[in-house]
Design a protein around this nucleic acid. Sequence first.
DNA 1: TTGAAAGCGCTAACAG
DNA 2: CTGTTAGCGCTTTCAA
Lengths: 331, 331
Amino acid sequence: MRKTGRPTMIDVAADAGVSLKTVSRVVNGEPNVDPAMATRVLDAVARLGYHRNALAASLRSGNRDTIGFIAADLSNTFYMAIAAAVSSIAARERMHLVMASSEEDAALERTLALDLCQRQVGGLIVVPTADDHSYLQREVELGTPVVFLDRPASGIPADAILLDNRGGARAAVAELLAAGHRRIAVLLDSPAIFTMVQRREGVHEAFTDAGLELDPVLVIDGLHTPKAARDAMERLLDAETAPTAVFCANNRITIGALEAVLPRGVEIAISGFDDFELSRLLPRRIRIVDYDIADLGARAAETLLRRGADPATGTHTHLVPTRLVDRGGMR
Amino acid sequence: MRKTGRPTMIDVAADAGVSLKTVSRVVNGEPNVDPAMATRVLDAVARLGYHRNALAASLRSGNRDTIGFIAADLSNTFYMAIAAAVSSIAARERMHLVMASSEEDAALERTLALDLCQRQVGGLIVVPTADDHSYLQREVELGTPVVFLDRPASGIPADAILLDNRGGARAAVAELLAAGHRRIAVLLDSPAIFTMVQRREGVHEAFTDAGLELDPVLVIDGLHTPKAARDAMERLLDAETAPTAVFCANNRITIGALEAVLPRGVEIAISGFDDFELSRLLPRRIRIVDYDIADLGARAAETLLRRGADPATGTHTHLVPTRLVDRGGMR
DNA sequence: TTGAAAGCGCTAACAG
DNA sequence: CTGTTAGCGCTTTCAA
């Protein structure tokens, strides 16, 4: 019982009058221990208030029982929901989840990822912000499974769990076109974001499929906050030839657009990617490209655990399907 | 370079032709190292792809650089938001956050907490579900700071960060009374939950202050889901003497009540504890007992870190203030 | 079935 | 400024 004040196996062994190894056996529930001895050890454990030091144990055995999760932005409920899903799978496997946020900063992502590897995580789930992940090559080779989420990795072969961004956006816009809309506004976040590029492609595909063309004036990107989206939407509504419909490329943008549209009470069809809390309570009906967010996290965790077992060969990219649903329309 | 395949300091030392300790110095950025040697070491580090094993390092030094967070229910956005706030403070201190959910299960809470202690966390933030926390007594004595969040601990002296539940509920109901409402319904979750008891007390205080009495028929508790709250609200609205106002004791209940009220378009004042995403977009105006949720998490983290420095004497309970705000009314 | 000894990868203490 | 020697608390051989 030295500097930390915590009793060690040695203390327990001394107290029980057995060897260190016997204590180890009892504490770890190994078989072939004389019941009488086991009792003596357990008594000593209780008396001293002994708790095994899991870190020291894993040092020698090499057991890795924690999963690292690096979100792009923890203030976004999307990533929090994924973290919750991953956490629940981790708990099921008796593993721990340590989470961090790169704040959409590539350098920070790298630091955090490498930091977690130094902490000997059993695996890493990353929502990539960086555009080059070769910095993880070494860790992958050394046996740390890495799964990318929401956005693919580059410069390194690895599993990835992605949404069907293109298909979802395409379906949403195709529906608007089928309803007769021609002047369809498209609001997007920065084109530096993978999902935005994909969703934009989906929009174009829908137009192409219909033999129509998208008016570039109605396409606005770089909308990173609901406020920016609201302002953009207001400008569109004030324009001479206002759109009759709008496709919002993510939930923050949808919210911003709603903030512009609702107070005016203007007639405009709204369709958005990503569901959000309380979308059902909205006063007007909107269409949402929805998907199972818990499934996204769960698949990532499961893919990671499977990788843990067998080595890193034949990486896969999983596409999580989307579906169009009705939201709002209450009152 | 043994079983794990990962190079160790010994490998680096051999490669650089210096002693282990010199490698340690360079790797840890300690001063007083000859630049020439440092370069040689750094070269070897790069050549071998060496990364320091943080677990092994902390084994000897006793450094604890991870914070454990046990939420009551990670599917609740309230706790997720807190986790995000804690994570951000942790990051600022170069610490990691490992999170888990007790799923409102006392036994699980205990298992998780003790588990994290075995992993040598530098501190624990717990949203308590258990009604006895003496199981943590030992760890606290041994120097692991523990802070309770949202609900107080029992059977153990410890810091706690709580909301001003009573004051918030009281203010909300006082306002309804001042507006002339007399038949005020009160919807609550289970009275087994600390916050519910407090908020209920606040409601009673408001009535007492006004020299009025609360009609017990209008008080309904045990509402654990939005659905249950909606059903209860519908029953109240169908009753002969329907309430003219309702106080909802948490956000899930407020949402349920809204689901009952909005489609009917009935006139009833709604006041609820806890803000929620998009409350601003609601079609009708409601009053919310709001507070800074990030502040709640940040205070917990900061209290924990302060405890880390000085020993566990003079524990405090911090009350986070609430304020009444307008929400909704859009459209 | 039990135990002694070696070592996981690193840091701490003390010399040189 | 650099290296040597212990040891952190536990698991892992390998004997007894």
